[in-house]
Design a protein around this nucleic acid. Structure first.
Lengths: 236, 236
DNA sequence: ATCAACACGTGACTC
DNA sequence: TGAGTCACGTGTTGA
């Protein structure tokens, strides 16, 4: 069905058959349709159409190549390339882009809260004189920001770790400063469970224990650290 | 060229023409090719082929729809959709995915340096007794980590800001702790200029000034802040 | 008239 | 077999 005149232009990259024919025609005299031995206008038109079809064909080939090339690189980029199917691949790409955009916006939203000169800001804060606790949703990201000031105690960090673990909160970022026996902490967390508002309440409850629990354990705890010294590193 | 038998299966969504013919055939007696009035096997085969072609056609339609649907959502997702061209769109997608992956890896590489229980860790550090400065490349991300301990002075933060600005370093993240008049800071920065190693040296030089410059300005500077009090907020 | 981009139907191939 | 995917060539439309 497609084999009509295919032998004329299909072999190799001979997109110049029309040009060749033009050269042949220009070097010959005028001819008519009646003379079958010379190049007739009808044959000329046919060759022209064939050449046009050929260029069109090759242009489409190039276009396909570009698209498929990008899809191939996408396939090499994507992490979970289980389905090598082209549609599924694009779907997976959409999913990944959404996820990455969300992640980056979450991570950069923290910096964007207060914008400084060098486009990334940092707010250095000092502890307040009275104990306080503030837990709230971050506006754009799905994160929760918890800030609190209280007396600095050696047991606070482990308690904080335990509180965050109980609230199933993953620490995305934390800033702490300690001055004059008082400490202020700001932690940005991502809740591991779906229920956002319930999780926020739970987190606030857990943190309240940490903030309000004054240093009771100073007298007890025979297995405590020597000299009331705080260990150097903590992992949140 | 494509119009052969198109009227049989092209009108509407009639992919059941073959089934109809089967029903007609089962209710009639056996026939031969010689009898043109009855449904002949050749016609039967023709109808069957038409039905197959039809289902094939529709399957391909579905496939195209899925692919183009994903491409359309990609188009809505992408930020700079100047070229609505399909190939350019995919190319832009590749670029975006690479960029986002790089960004997130940079941002999370900081947390991944020391891995804690809740998959995001935080190392709380204490100032050393002696002044020190350490500037190095982060392993995987293109970031530079600068850590230093020194006496805590009110002028230190503005000086630090100036130093980072001079080194053309953008702060990605910073952690500071101050205890007993000593302060330790760790800042992760991204150099705004191309030359990485030269930039690192410049940053080290600038920071060295901050760390080593002991509080000379305590006596002078008539326009200083009242009471040697540190301002509450700094923007890095 | 040329070119680029698109959707379509079809043959080849795989599971 | 049938359902699915792919590359291909073609018709069409807009700059």
């Amino acid at each position: 069905m497609f084999s009509i005149n295919q032998s004329l232009y299909e072999a190799g990259s001979c997109s110049d058959s029309y040009a060749i024919l033009q050269g042949m025609l220009s070097s010959s005299q005028a001819d008519t349709d009646q003379n079958p031995n010379l190049i007739s206008p009808s044959f000329m038109a046919e060759a022209k159409a064939a050449a046009a079809s050929n260029s069109h064909k090759e242009a489409e080939r190039r276009r396909r190549k570009r698209i498929n090339g990008h899809i191939a690189t996408l396939k090499s980029i994507l992490p979970n390339t289980i389905k090598t199917d082209k549609a599924s691949l694009l779907g997976e790409t959409v999913r990944l882009v959404k996820e990455l955009k969300k992640t980056t916006s979450e991570l950069t939203a923290i910096d964007a809260e207060t914008n400084g000169e060098l486009s990334t800001s940092l707010t250095l804060m000092f502890p307040s004189e009275t104990d306080d606790l503030n837990v709230c949703h971050c506006e754009n990201s799905g994160l929760i920001r918890a800030a609190f000031s209280c007396d600095d105690r050696p047991e606070m960090i482990p308690e904080l770790i335990q509180a965050l673990k109980s609230a199933e909160a993953k620490v995305v970022r934390a800033e702490m400063s300690t001055v004059g026996g008082r400490t202020k902490s700001v932690v940005w967390v991502k809740l591991l469970t779906g229920e956002s508002d319930a999780g926020l309440g739970r987190l606030r409850r857990e943190l309240k224990k940490v903030v309000m629990e004054k240093s009771i354990s100073l007298a007890g705890s025979g297995q405590g650290l020597p000299g009331n010294k705080r260990p150097r590193y903590y992992h949140l």
